[in-house]
Design a binder for these strands. Structure first.
Lengths: 147, 147
DNA sequence: ATGATATTGATAATCAATATCAAGTAGGGG
DNA sequence: CCCCTACTTGATATTGATTATCAATATCAT
């Protein structure tokens, strides 16, 4: 995969902001896209390290913020104050199910939510940016293991 | 208010766990209940300080964990990795709307969610502990201010 | 190519939350 | 009612994730 599409989105975001397109940023973006599951900043750092050990910790953190700004990634906040990042481009999954036992996160698709959320938005005069539904509990696998 | 009910719940929780009912714990619980809005651990610490400056930071943190265990409080995870605590006893609001501008949090009541969540739970063989719906955007007031 | 400006990586700094530990209590059994 | 043991406390040190700092370097419009 070449991620041409996403790289273009990122590039134009950077240009629009007067920022620069660097090798590090592109490498980090590619590594991020290559992993389908959710990543913490540190997970991504380790992934990037394998390709290019010269890239620093801070750069990964910084680039993740940029990716969020470019709407290529979004942050999700899990238990224990951990932050994960997920792909956003071409996605619109804001519903997650997290297993409090093994930590696995499943993305859900609950179309009915959208209309509910819209209704609430109108009722409260809120201008919605985003929403997130998070279910937490014990996943099927862990439920079996602990039985 | 005497919070008799909640104190009893806490007491029996402690006994059940072989833990002790101390003045500090009760004071912290009362302070927590006295404030209707969401609190960070530090907010609560400052509140408790006013009544009893001798109570330490760590004790507040520890007691909040206990309150969660006793189902009197629950944690909510906001942007920037901040954790807040909200009342849980007699509550069942898991729906929040957070203004990304002023930071205000509004508790919602969306009864339809419950059945949606139940459906998903069944579909995935998940054993649900909790769920949280978080809407984020600009609240009516801030929307007006920035117009 | 040049130069203004953004970027990088190493390091130090920050912050909330947690672990440690000696001294102080609670509260059940006698 | 007192003892004893185990739980608690508060001060402090520690952790771990994220950010700030800063000199050296790279980008890109011209």
């Amino acid at each position: 995969m070449d991620y041409k599409e996403e790289i273009k989105v990122f590039s134009s975001f950077l240009k629009r902001r007067g920022l620069k397109h660097t090798d590090q940023r592109e490498e980090i973006l590619k590594a991020f896209l290559s992993e389908e599951k959710h990543l913490t900043a540190d997970d991504l750092y380790l992934l990037v390290m394998k390709k290019n050990p010269a890239i620093g910790h801070a750069t990964v953190y910084r680039t993740l913020k940029l990716l969020c700004g470019a709407n290529l990634a979004s942050e999700i906040y899990l238990k224990d104050n951990r932050v994960c990042y997920e792909h956003k481009y071409g996605h619109r999954a804001h519903e997650h199910m997290v297993c409090v036992h093994c930590g696995k996160t499943i993305e859900l698709r609950i179309p009915e939510i959208e209309s509910l959320v819209k209704k609430v938005e109108k009722e409260h005069g809120f201008k919605l940016n985003d929403y997130a539904l998070k279910l937490s509990g014990i996943c099927a696998k862990c439920g079996k293991d602990t039985k």
